[in-house]
Write a protein that binds this DNA or RNA. Structure first.
Lengths: 218, 218
DNA sequence: TAGATTGTTAATCGATTAACAATC
DNA sequence: TAGATTGTTAATCGATTAACAATC
């Protein structure tokens, strides 16, 4: 089981989206915004925005609305984006390399310290100055270089084993791209991105009408 | 706005997970399972499993439970995985290539017909026999080769424009990896994978305890 | 001050869980 | 038949929306 959050996951998952929209407004030179204006832009209710924000404090001002920069900075802080996070990628295949190459994460304080793989052809390779190491060296590396977030881009067969090994050397958070649910102790965080699951909701929706026609005829 | 579904999205998003667990059981030679046994494996309530499945019909049998193969096949059908889907990837950078290389999607009937990019260095490149074409040829290609799903792995600045152009030539579903919400007509499906949003929920959770200490002191 | 808009309480809605009669 | 377990209705819970007093 992963750690329970003080604030509901429904709200937490909306925070990055608020952050994006406020960043955009800030870029466009907008200095203030009401919950109603923002709600129109985002396609949510003004009530929800006010409720969500008030889980963390009163960032607005009656009669005025919200100061865009202040609110953006507050959400940046709430999301923990004022800190830095050291991370490793386990699995230096296509997806692992793609994530390693995605420099945007670095901007937000997520620093990649190493990649690991079993494939001798990949070991020694450098991706944006970060080296691919033999996965046998993983525990040793993490013991010497404390790692906040382990990114798992490995086949599902190996995911639980790798997670267990990393938990044993103190890793407390996983970004899991393997097509399997990993089991971790209560104090360890897992955020999974199940790409196939996501894709299958598309095929479901492309077929839903036909599906219910089929089901009715039974 | 994207199309409303008959079944709630909460349920739809659980279907691929059922599918994974049942596939695993099937692989392990398990022939029958009760909602209670499955609930223990998956960490959900038996009640939820029965409610979810009964949105689509009665696949079980009183006193027996569910036949694993039958239920697996039923969910395969429900998810639309008995059909094939022609797709294109727009944006042949690291992430686009990683997805193109991920052969598992092909197994489930998702066929990649082409990639598109603006970068002359990428145009002409082949990824697993699929060619990267100039994005200028995109509409022409889609007009001649009907495409079910367009996968957007492009910078956020270009996402809406590309989506609009594809909608104009009849694309009805998008798998969007751009860090922006795209607006589409009612009859068009969008499934977004916002990687940064997902990552930021990790930094949030790593910081939550400290955050609330900070907030209390104000 | 008057108008606007928040912060917050109350009402509603939808999703999850519990319970149990139906039935294999 | 008796036991087990579904399918389904009813109860509960949590999240969303509405309403409005507080206040800038």
């Amino acid at each position: 089981m992963a750690k329970d959050t003080k604030v509901s996951m429904a709200i937490i998952r909306r925070l990055p989206r608020y952050h994006r929209y406020l960043g955009e407004l800030l870029n466009n030179g907008v200095t203030r915004i009401s919950s109603q204006e923002l709600s129109k832009k985002m396609g949510v209710t003004a009530s929800q925005i006010r409720q969500d924000l008030n889980s963390f404090g009163g960032f607005g001002q009656q009669g005025y609305g919200y100061n865009v920069k202040d609110l953006y900075d507050a959400i940046t802080m709430i999301l923990g984006l004022e800190k830095t996070y050291d991370s490793i990628i386990v699995g230096a295949g296509n997806l692992g390399q793609a994530i390693a190459n995605y420099t945007n994460f670095q901007i937000w304080g997520f620093r990649l310290k190493a990649l690991f793989d079993v494939n001798p052809k990949l070991i020694g390779l450098k991706i944006r100055d970060v080296e691919v190491l033999d996965v046998d060296l993983m525990e040793d590396f993490v013991s010497k270089n404390p790692i906040d977030i382990a990114i798992l881009t490995i086949p599902k067969e190996r995911a639980q084993e790798i997670a267990d090994r990393l938990i044993a050397v103190g890793v407390k958070a996983f970004w899991n791209f393997s097509a399997v649910d990993i089991n971790v102790p209560d104090d360890v965080i897992v955020e999974s991105v199940h790409l196939s699951d996501s894709l299958f909701t598309i095929s479901y929706r492309l077929n839903e009408d036909e599906l219910f026609k089929k089901l009715k005829n039974k």
